[in-house]
């Protein structure tokens, strides 16, 4: 490794303040930390609660329990069948999908930025001194595992297909046959946005065309890359919107399943 010219830190401007910024730089990381904490707390509670995840009249299944593969799943909810017997309460019913969904979000390039800033404060905001003595970034375990993001992406595509199947199932009327209500609409919007979020992923952008050197030799992949790039520019917005729609979908199904209120039906 070449030695660069000496630029010893002691000859930098010796300014003791951690930042001279006068704007409200602390606001954004505080908001992000609060929202992520609320979401994770909510999701953790409902994932382990083990009930109010399925509305049998309308075939509404919350995405937090899809696919429901535990032996304790109610029969209609287990669209892929039950893969296990009775699982201990610390294992969620959708144990085969949740680790991948969680891994996808944790290794997502946007969420990495969000939680490195909000929780690890490396840095909390630009030009604000971070509190750590040492920094190795993503060069070592465990953070070097962030490089596996594309594998979580592959798995999430399969899970999105399953979520789409759940929405099709939710077009189910009270008396059988086709029907739809507000729950169906919420599930549909959620799954469309989930697809947009998954396809706007930086790994998807790389796989579909970004890895090429010659766009002109691959016009179809170049066209796809351009479409994905358009979505990718909205990755942050989609990341937050889908957190909101996931929570809304789950909460709506939870409340309908718990008979707090009835589903608003448009047809049947």
């Amino acid at each position: 490794m070449t030695q660069v010219s000496d630029a010893p830190a002691k000859t930098r401007a010796q300014i003791s303040q951690k930042t001279l910024r006068t704007d409200r730089w602390w606001e954004q990381p505080a908001i992000v930390a609060t929202l992520l904490t609320i979401w994770v707390t909510y999701a953790t509670v409902h994932v382990f609660i083990g009930k109010w995840y399925w509305v049998p009249q309308y075939h509404y299944l919350t995405p937090f329990y899809s696919p429901c593969v535990s032996g304790e799943c109610v029969p209609g909810a287990a669209s892929l069948g039950t893969w296990f017997g009775h699982l201990p309460p610390i294992i969620p019913y959708a144990v085969v999908s949740l680790p991948f969904v969680l891994g996808f979000r944790l290794s997502c390039y946007y969420y990495r930025r969000a939680y490195y800033r909000a929780f690890w404060r490396a840095p909390a905001a630009c030009a604000v001194r971070e509190p750590h003595q040492k920094y190795t970034g993503e060069t070592r375990f465990p953070l070097i595992m962030q490089n596996l993001h594309r594998y979580f992406f592959y798995m999430v595509i399969l899970i999105s297909i399953l979520n789409t199947y759940d929405v099709i199932q939710a077009f189910h009327g009270k008396t059988g046959g086709i029907g739809f209500g507000l729950g169906t609409l919420i599930m549909l919007v959620n799954v469309v946005l989930l697809w947009c979020y998954s396809l706007s992923c930086h790994s998807c952008r790389h796989i579909t065309g970004g890895r090429l050197k010659h766009f002109s030799k691959h016009p179809v992949r170049y066209w796809i890359w351009n479409r994905i790039s358009w979505l990718n520019a909205r990755h942050m917005q989609l990341a937050w919107t889908t957190l909101g729609t996931l929570m809304l979908t789950d909460l709506y199904i939870w409340l309908v399943a718990a008979h707090v209120f009835s589903d608003f039906r448009f047809y049947n």
């Binding site: 930025r113 490195y116 630009c126 920094y135 993503e138």
Partner: peptide
Amino acid sequence: GLGFCNITKCCTEVCPEHIKITD
């Protein structure tokens, strides 16, 4: 040292040419 980068996007934020360095 690409692995040191934790994509917090400060480079993009300050670029006067608005180059999307991170993305």
